[in-house]
Every structure is written in structure tokens, then in C-alpha cells.
Nucleic acid binder design. Structure first.
Ligand code: FES
Ligand code: FES
Lengths: 143, 143
DNA sequence: CATAAAAAGGATAAAAATGTCTTTTAATCT
DNA sequence: AGATTAAAAGACATTTTTATCCTTTTTATG
């Protein structure tokens, strides 16, 4: 479905969405325990996202990662695409081709619709969507 | 979603479903090219399935892999469970816990239903279901 | 300007998934 | 019985994913 790395990245971004903004940047050191991701690994993933302008960061004292207002409009697919590549999530249940109607596999009729829906959720759900209502942090990272 | 190995295994079993029975056993050598899976690797996967009584096999001359009538009633989940383990396919989109209502993650509301449906398809679809109508082999393995 | 803080980057390591090869076991046929 | 055939089993190799470590660069601040 999604790679571990993508899951980690999403969790990291969610934490930033709940706790950061331009004036309150956050160090990896303060995130990794809450989201249960190894510190150095999470750093790598956030750097990758920052490099692709999915999230924001500044170096130096008082620096850290954060989400700008624009960043919050990013979708889950933006994250997944950056970390896993789009191919991975869109590939057919039985192989590596893109899953399309033109050349469907035997299972497509059974699972294709589900898969499309899942992808649509990734594409249409923004970070903002996920945190509206600002629920408890605990609720976001129960594992 | 599913591991490569599971995909391979499903393709192998589908081939057996279309071409084998107790009286017509099939060697890996005659399958691997059609389903585009490395010979030795496919062999290993089929052995694993056989060991778990998901498919059947006999050694020696005239031996090979085949599906008994019983085997054809196996579900896709039987294959996936044997190769990947059930945990992998049932795990939460954001983590490794089982995906359940009691302790849902932020994304569960959005994708949980889809995932459940997908799993139900795996659990409820038998090999027999997939090959009824006995379509062209080409149609089954377009990749 | 010096210093310290923080991300960025590169090199390496460990683990898991994928893939190959060789030997052993069992069935069939002569 | 002996030779042959094919799966079973397991050792070995490669690749990808996951994870760590260490150095460099950038930046805020005293
Ligand atoms: S083509 Fe295989 S799932 Fe769509
Ligand atoms: S608990 Fe995360 S998807 Fe169901």
C-alpha cells in the first residue's frame, strides 16, 4: 500500500501541522519520539520533503521544520509521490503496469474501483483537511 | 498493498487453475515464462504454497504442481496469508497495528472502509471464481 | 565576528525482500 | 533394482528498503 517511509513522512508532517508555523519551527529532535520514527531517518525524510517544497525549513538557531499556510494545502499524494514515487501506489494489484481500464488484469474488476477510490482520497485530502477540528495529539499518534 | 511475492504466487496459481488438474500436473519450467516470474523464485513460492496445502504437487516423473478440486476453493487470502502473512495486508495505512475501529488512526475514517472492502474481496474470492468463464490465458497474464 | 544551533549531505550499516544455485528426496519407467 | 525425472529443501547472492553516523553548510544571536 504505502511504504514505511511514506507512513513515517505523513506522521511527521501531521505533527508539524498540529504544532508548527512560521513562528514556531520544530526540530526533528522534538518530533521523533512522539511519532515513533528513528530520529535520523525522520530527518532524512523531512529533508526530502523540504527539498521538494512539500514542507518548509530553515537552518541555524531557532531553525527547524514547519508548515507554511501553502504547505498545509498539500495533499497526502504530494507526500507519497515525493517519498515513494507515484508508480508504486498506482500500480496494478497483480503487477507493475499502471492500473487502467484499457488493459485490466483479472482482479481489476474486483479491486480496481477500491484502488481508484483510495488514490482519490490521497489526491484530494490535504493536510489541512486532516487536522481541522484540532483534535488531541495523542489521537493522531496512538502508535 | 501486496508484496511482489504474493502477486507472483497468485499468477502462478491462476496458471495452474487454467491448465492443470490431478491428471495434468505442470512443471515450473512450463509456467514461469507465461506469468513472467523468475523460474527458481516461482518454484520456491509454489513449494511454499504446497507445503501449506494451498496447492498440490507430486515429485518425480509425471510430477508437477496442480490444483485439486479442493484447492480451487481456496481464496486469494489463503495465498496472501501464506506468502506475506495476514498482518501485512491488514495493517493500518499509517502503522503496523491491525486496522480496527477501536483505535483508528486519523486516516481510518477516510480509507478504512476501502481497505476493509479490499480485504473482503481477498477473503471471499476463490480461485474458481476467478477462472469461471475460462477466458483466454493471454487475458490473464498481459504482463 | 565568534559561536552555537540546526538542517543538508554523504557514507556506511543492517535488515528485509527478492532472486539463484546445489543437493536431497520421492516417484516413475525401464 | 537402477536410471531418470521433478519437486523439496536449504544454502547462497543480490537488491532494495530501512536506519545510523558523521561532516559540512547555513543562519541567528550575543
Ligand atoms: S489492472 Fe490489475 S488491478 Fe487494475
Ligand atoms: S487504523 Fe489506520 S487505516 Fe485503520
Amino acid at each position: 500500500m504505502l511504504s514505511n517511509s511514506s507512513k513515517y513522512a505523513i506522521k511527521g508532517v501531521l505533527y508539524l501541522a498540529l504544532n508548527s508555523d512560521e513562528d514556531h519551527k520544530i526540530m526533528v529532535r522534538d518530533i521523533f519520539e512522539v511519532v515513533h520514527v528513528p530520529e535520523a531517518y525522520l530527518a532524512k525524510l523531512l529533508q526530502e520533503l523540504s527539498r521538494h517544497n512539500i514542507i518548509s525549513s530553515t537552518r541555524g538557531p531557532k531553525g527547524g521544520f514547519y508548515l507554511s499556510a501553502e504547505d498545509r494545502k498539500r495533499t497526502l499524494m504530494d507526500i507519497v509521490r515525493t517519498i515513494d514515487g507515484e508508480k508504486r501506489v498506482k500500480s496494478c494489484v497483480l503487477g507493475i503496469q499502471d492500473c487502467d481500464m484499457d488493459n485490466p488484469c483479472v482482479l481489476h474488476k474486483l479491486v480496481g474501483a477500491n484502488k481508484s477510490k483510495f488514490i482519490k482520497v490521497l489526491e484530494n485530502t490535504t493536510i489541512l483537511d486532516l487536522i481541522e477540528g484540532k483534535q488531541e495529539i495523542k489521537q493522531f499518534f496512538p502508535f
